[in-house]
Structure formats: structure tokens, C-alpha cells
């Protein structure tokens, strides 16, 4: 109770600091702290799957992405795109936002009691999937369509980010070339961590069927294990024209859709798994999807291909 209050106060303080920070770098640093504290809140809310994802993607990958953006923008990061609103307007916006927050808080306090829930239905239907982790069951079976579409959104994001490439660099490797740091501590980390990280990711993916964990968390860790050597200048990403790279990004989503269409052909409904086949099919989709999402997440962090990147 007191711990929750302290945690909530800390999160609110860090969020306020991040939003109001004068310098972009400070804001991003506070934002990373925000993500990490938020994942503690998720633990307190008995959602370990979300806690891991929030820490890995919300704080980790987003943090790397935004820090990189601040560094590359340099003074531009703090430069206003247009004039800041005047004092009066700011005050009005502040009052409006406080009103929204207050209305929202009231609505949350007045949510019906007992809370409507699908937990009993999920628990009743879960055995037919052969899975032990209810969240994985929802993601891969009951609401499998959402997960499939989300995988498609990630592919689309890669296409969209690449479409923002400056002219002249088409087909080259994504992202700005990173300076080689040689024998420094980052280089050491970039050499030592990936093997460990890959084992951890495989573990998280494997237990995800029955325990907290799963493809998003594993994919985020795998992506980080690729980004680390890239940041250290040890690994050059492949050219975006490379066929295998593009195949890797889409393999998981394609497999997912094909299994879904096969379900429509055989069982009469998209994403219907034949009886007894649910768990092996879900596991296979998850393994391939993890690899695809990992590659896509890393590519999204690296950014569009640059003309000055190695050809």
C-alpha cells in the first residue's frame, strides 16, 4: 500500500520531469527511468508479461531510439518547430488536461463493481489450446487476429521507415555508420553480452507458452543483442536490398497468415487450429515470429538507409 503510493508518486514525478524538462537529453533520461518504474507498477498489478515488455520495449528500445535521435539532432533536438503557446494558452491547456485527468480518474473510480471480466471464459477455454499462460492463449488463439495484424503493422513500419530514406542512399545499409570504439568497455560488453542475451531470449520464448514471457519480450532482447554490436561499431547491418534480410522480416507474419488461411480452408474459420494441433502450431508460429519481430525491431531502431552508410 505505502510502497504502491511511493511508486506511483515517483512515476508521476518522473513523468512530469520528463515532459517539462528543459533539455531533450534530460527528458529522455527521465523517460527511461519512467519506463523502468512503470514496469515495477506492472509487477504490482500482477501482469509480469507486461512488466517485461514495458521494460524491454517501453524503456529499453524506446530509450535507445530516443537517445540516438537526441544525439543525431544535436541542437535541433531542443529547437522549437514553431512558437511555443503563450502563458495564457498554456494555462488554459493545463486546466483542460487537468480536467481530462480528473474526469478519467472519476470514471475509473466509478467503474462497476464487481468488475466485468473475461478471466473465467479464458480459463475455461484455455485447455483446448494446450497452453498454460493465459496471456499467450489470448494473443495466439482467442485474439490471434490482433497479434497477426500487429505483426503486419511492424512490417509496414519497416517499409514506412525505409521510405523516409534520403535520396541517393537507396539499397544501402540502414542507419548512420557507427564509429568503431575498438577495445573500450562498450566493445567488451558488445562481445560478451549477446551470447548470454540469446540464451535468455530463447528461454523467455520457450517458457512463454506456460509461464510469463513470450515472443515480444524475447524479440526485444534479441533485437538489443543485435543493436549492441552495431552501436559498438562491431557489426555492420546488411544492405536493405539484401533478399535474406527482407525475407527475415516477413517470414513470421507470412507463416502466421498462411496458417490462418489454412485454418479457413480446413476448419472453416480463419486462424482455427485443428484439434490437437493448436499448441505445436502456436509454438512454431511464435518461434518464427520472434525472429522476424526481432529483426524488424532492430531495423526500426537503426532507421532508414543513409547515403553515407557503407554500400
Amino acid at each position: 500500500m505505502i510502497a504502491d503510493l511511493l511508486l506511483a508518486a515517483a512515476i508521476a514525478a518522473v513523468a512530469t520531469g520528463s515532459v517539462l524538462a528543459r533539455r531533450a537529453f534530460t527528458a529522455v533520461a527521465l523517460f527511461i527511468a519512467y519506463g523502468l518504474l512503470l514496469s515495477l507498477a506492472w509487477v504490482r498489478l500482477a501482469a509480469p508479461d507486461v512488466a517485461m515488455t514495458e521494460a524491454a520495449i517501453g524503456a529499453g528500445l524506446s530509450g535507445v531510439l530516443l537517445l540516438g535521435a537526441v544525439r543525431r539532432l544535436g541542437p535541433h533536438a531542443d529547437a522549437p518547430a514553431n512558437l511555443p503557446p503563450g502563458l495564457l494558452l498554456t494555462a488554459l491547456i493545463g486546466i483542460g488536461c487537468a480536467g481530462v485527468a480528473a474526469a478519467l480518474g472519476a470514471a475509473i473510480l466509478w467503474l462497476p463493481e464487481p468488475a466485468p471480466t473475461l478471466a473465467p471464459q479464458v480459463a475455461a477455454a484455455l485447455p483446448t489450446t494446450g497452453l498454460g499462460n493465459a496471456v499467450t492463449g489470448v494473443l495466439m488463439s482467442f485474439r490471434g487476429l490482433d497479434t497477426l495484424l500487429e505483426a503486419a503493422v511492424v512490417v509496414l513500419a519497416v517499409i514506412a521507415v525505409w521510405s523516409l530514406a534520403p535520396d541517393g542512399g537507396w539499397g544501402s545499409a540502414p542507419g548512420a555508420r557507427q564509429p568503431v570504439v575498438g577495445r573500450g568497455p562498450l566493445s567488451l560488453l558488445a562481445r560478451m553480452l549477446p551470447p548470454i542475451g540469446i540464451v535468455v531470449a530463447a528461454h523467455i520464448l520457450w517458457v512463454g507458452a506456460d509461464a510469463p514471457g513470450g515472443k515480444f519480450q524475447a524479440a526485444a532482447i534479441l533485437a538489443a543483442m543485435w543493436l549492441l554490436p552495431w552501436l559498438a561499431g562491431l557489426a555492420t547491418p546488411p544492405r536493405i536490398a539484401a533478399p535474406w534480410l527482407r525475407m527475415a522480416v516477413v517470414a513470421g507474419p507470412v507463416l502466421f497468415i498462411v496458417v490462418g488461411l489454412a485454418g479457413a480452408a480446413v476448419e472453416g474459420a480463419f486462424l482455427a487450429y485443428p484439434p490437437g494441433w493448436a499448441k505445436p502450431l502456436i509454438k512454431s508460429i511464435e518461434v518464427v515470429l520472434t525472429a522476424s519481430i526481432a529483426v524488424a525491431l532492430a531495423l526500426l531502431v537503426m532507421g532508414p538507409p543513409e547515403p553515407d552508410a557503407p554500400r
Partner: peptide, 20 residues
């Protein structure tokens, strides 16, 4: 309730894609 938890997992990935 695992349903909203699953929605958040999807939402986090989509929000990250938007950020990139």
C-alpha cells in the same frame, strides 16, 4: 483478466512502431 493484458502487449509494440 488476461484479455486487457494481451491488449497492452499489442499496444506497446504498436506505440513503439509509431515512435520509430
Amino acid at each position: 483478466d488476461p484479455v486487457p493484458q494481451a491488449l497492452v502487449l499489442t499496444g506497446i509494440v504498436v506505440a513503439f512502431a509509431a515512435t520509430t
